[in-house]
């Protein structure tokens, strides 16, 4: 298998930038730029902790990474790699800086907010945009065709889910997807994949939930009762 790429990971301690310390720095910088370009400003304003997976890297590396991050409006957390903050302080580490939040606090604006093991995305994901998170994802907006949401936990969309959603992406078969309008191009839960039938034109009347039952993905109207079944 190919060596791990440069990836952003949302964790309970905030946003982490995972890099492969075996790469050469130029390659790494190229990959980081590519990631940030793909994200199209999605992470802008966020504080990031560098995760070298335990490897020790030269301080010049960290400087180089910091410079690229700052160019894209992110900041690098001061804390040394590998050194964990106590949980209660770290909870907001992935959050947008206070200034940014005050600047454009509208529901359409904004950088993702990480709280505990859930990320809150307060905007519509448009074609070409993606969110990937180690935990649950809540989107306050639509997920348009051509965009993707990946979560190791549950996915909740307060809007129309028309793109691709993958809940339980690390294999959690208990994960579910809930949306006010659940009309995805494709839906994945754990290792199962479904798509809408080609002749499906009906639009669901209300919120729905998708989950795994006996190994296949089923979709049902969302009621609070469904919630208790799932536990």
């Amino acid at each position: 298998m190919k060596a791990q790429e440069v990836i952003f990971k949302g964790t309970r301690d905030g946003l982490r930038l995972v890099i492969d310390a075996d790469e050469n720095i130029e390659e790494l910088k190229g990959k980081l730029r590519r990631r940030l370009n793909e994200a199209e400003g999605f992470y802008s304003g966020a504080r990031v902790r560098l995760d070298t997976r335990g490897a020790v890297v030269p301080p010049e590396w960290i400087e180089e990474v910091r410079m690229i991050l700052e160019e894209y409006g992110l900041s690098l957390s001061e804390e040394k790699p590998g050194q964990r903050r106590p949980r209660q302080h770290a909870a907001g580490a992935g959050r947008a800086s206070a200034k940014k939040v005050l600047d454009d606090g509208g529901p359409e604006s904004g950088e993702p907010i990480v709280r505990g093991d859930t990320i809150l995305v307060r905007r519509t994901l448009r074609s070409g945009q993606a969110v990937s998170f180690d935990g649950n994802v809540v989107v306050m907006g639509d997920v348009n065709p051509g965009s993707e949401v990946l979560a190791t936990g549950d996915i909740v969309v307060f809007g129309s889910l028309r793109g691709m959603a993958h809940a339980g992406s690390a294999g959690n078969a208990e994960a579910c997807v809930v949306a006010l309008r659940l009309i995805p191009t494709q839906l994945r839960i754990a290792d199962k994949i479904t798509r809408a039938p080609d002749d499906e034109t009906q639009v669901p009347q209300g919120p729905e939930v998708a989950y795994l039952r006996e190994g296949s993905i089923v979709i049902e109207p969302w009621t609070t009762h469904t919630g208790t079944v799932l536990v």
Partner: peptide, 15 residues
């Protein structure tokens, strides 16, 4: 329309 959606996302990202 899909391409317009992509462009709108990119415009938002570019402020």
């Amino acid at each position: 329309v899909r391409d317009a959606d992509r462009i709108i996302g990119m415009l938002e990202a570019e402020e």
